[in-house]
């Protein structure tokens, strides 16, 4: 599969179809896989693909340091690919200008990340080229996807608030959650607005609650559940739980899963006569 990936990328670069490939690479076999940007056909041997390729590379489609490389090809896992559809729906990318290389994936991490346990997109579905073959997801994989939040919601509201206060008190506001998130593409984030200040920049419990609640709401119906924020957080805050809660609400109330159905309109950006909230009709 790795040979196939490298050959595909070599061909794309040689033919001039793209000027750079965003993929995974590593300096030595023991190193973690890191994002790499390959511009020369002879460098494709730097590319790797295995279950230590965590990063959701679609984030780089909003980084000017990468866009400056020219026309791009990008490697995506099934979960990451969902972000591309949301970005396209939100007019952030011109899908026709990007070559998407889908990577068949049976999950990442040892043990597997939580998101992989209930993954139902082992094979990217809308990629231009798909490399490799993956196992078919368990029939009940999807049914398990809200198991953690359902379990969490069994706790009392007081208990849950105590949990979040304890967790969020560790937040240092490094904004790694925001910087890794493909959906956080705002030119100026609301926390960076200082005339006037909307969200306190202090890493106090109050300021942290304000930041994380605001961020969660901005991701409602948009987060594709790649869990990069959870992986990136140096304070070990399980942001996945917040995201799952919003994903569950979006699916239950609107039958919508971000990045799954190209024909479905984004719930935040669409108006429907069938909306069950009266005030909007």
């Amino acid at each position: 599969m790795l040979d196939e990936l490298r050959q595909t990328c070599r061909r794309l670069l040689q033919d001039g179809a793209v000027q750079a490939v965003i993929g995974y690479g590593r300096a030595s076999p023991d190193d973690p896989a890191v994002p790499v940007f390959i511009s020369k056909p002879e460098d494709v041997d730097q590319l790797v693909w295995d279950d230590r390729c965590f990063a959701n590379l679609t984030k780089y489609l909003s980084r000017k340091e990468v866009l400056s490389l020219g026309k791009l090809a990008i490697c995506v896992k099934g979960c990451d690919e969902r972000a591309l559809l949301v970005l396209e729906k939100e007019s952030q990318i011109d899908r026709s200008q990007i070559t998407v290389i889908g990577l068949a994936c049976d999950g990442v991490g040892q043990p597997r990340l939580a998101k992989c346990e209930s993954c139902d997109v082992h094979m990217p579905r809308r990629a231009d080229i798909v490399v490799g073959k993956a196992t078919v997801p368990d029939a009940d994989a999807g049914a398990k996807r809200y198991a953690e939040i359902e379990e969490f919601l069994k706790r009392t509201p007081q208990d849950r608030m105590a949990y979040w206060k304890k967790e969020l008190s560790r937040c240092v506001k490094c904004y790694a959650c925001r910087q890794v998130c493909p959906m956080c593409y705002c030119r100026q984030c609301i926390v960076d607005k200082n005339r006037p200040v909307s969200i306190s920049t202090s890493a106090t419990l109050k300021g942290n609650l304000a930041w994380q609640i605001t961020r969660a709401f901005h991701l409602a119906g948009r987060c594709v559940g790649c869990d990069e924020c959870t992986r990136a957080c140096p304070a070990g805050i399980d942001l996945r739980l917040l995201n799952l809660s919003l994903a569950k609400a979006a699916e239950e109330n609107f039958g919508y899963r971000p990045g799954m159905d190209p024909d479905a309109e984004p719930i935040i950006g669409a108006y429907s006569q069938q909306d069950h909230e009266e005030f909007i009709r």
């Binding site: 340091e65 506001k173 490094c174 904004y175 910087q179 890794v180």
Partner: peptide, 16 residues
């Protein structure tokens, strides 16, 4: 540019 391109611009490095 080449050696730093993958940096996403967060503060995890500075704050830890």
């Amino acid at each position: 540019p080449a050696v730093t391109r993958r940096c996403l611009g967060c503060g995890a490095c500075a704050y830890t």
